[in-house]
Amino acid sequence: MNEAILPRDKGAAPLDLMIAVMAFLAALALGASLIADRAAQNWQNGLAGKITVQILPPQRGDAGKTLGAETQTVLGILRSTAGIARVNALSQAEQVKLVQPWLGTGNLVSDLPLPQLVDADIAPGSDVDLAALSTRLKQAVPDAVLDDHSHWIGRLRDLAHTFMWSAYGVLILIAVSMAAAVSFATRAGLDTHHEMVALLHQMGAQGGFIARAFEWHYFRSTLVAAAAGAAFAALLFMIAGGLQFAGVEAVPFLPPLGLKAQELLWLSVVPAGAGAIALVTARLSVLAALRSIY
């Protein structure tokens, strides 16, 4: 008793498939933007508060001996600077390990004149005048270059933000085409059920009553189709996350492609949004169509 007024449509499968695919793409875009956001945070947290002094190997004379003396001078200056917490000159082995992903493990590395790297942490909460520090270092050791990574962080953050905004753009495009698809389907549905709509109208049904029959119908089928598409995307993200645990090497600098559990939950925004779009679109199309009959 009290059955749905609109009969279940046969031949709605193409629309459902289309919605599922769009929801899948939307979930991919949303997941990618979450990854980019997380990567930007990680880069920021990992590098902020750290400075590195790079001492270039001198071109003439006893390179090793000069570099050693210059390193000591730099260490001295850093240690005497207020607000610098920890200072550490990287050993030869540590430096070789850093360039290994790019240059390999061959003899090339030991033959190359590598610069000496000195790491330092800025004590949390202290405000070090990096420009002044840079000048002091430069005066004492002309080959020393101070790097506070802000350039890097800025570039990576810009990259991540560009990526995120692109993903949002893709989401908007998908939302618009989803609305267009549902509006198209609603019009077709109104045509198919023309006699029923005319009957309800003749019986004195308000536009809202008729619209409800349609919007509820499209809300439900869109919600189900979009949930399926988003679930498939979630599965792919879980597999991508699993690969890294399975020991597949992550590419240097590329953030992990998996999503955390609470990030996966965000993907449910896709079916919810799709359902809402279908609801509103179907309602507006029905009400617009009803306005044209007496």
């Binding site: 008793m1 059955e3 007024i5 309800l200 004195g204 009553f209």
Partner: peptide, 19 residues
């Protein structure tokens, strides 16, 4: 003009649902 997918009961109840 009965609705074929609705039972006799639901067809008759339609005006009341509309109201």
């Amino acid at each position: 003009r009965l609705l074929d997918h609705l039972s006799a009961f639901d067809n008759v109840a339609l005006p009341l649902r509309i109201a």
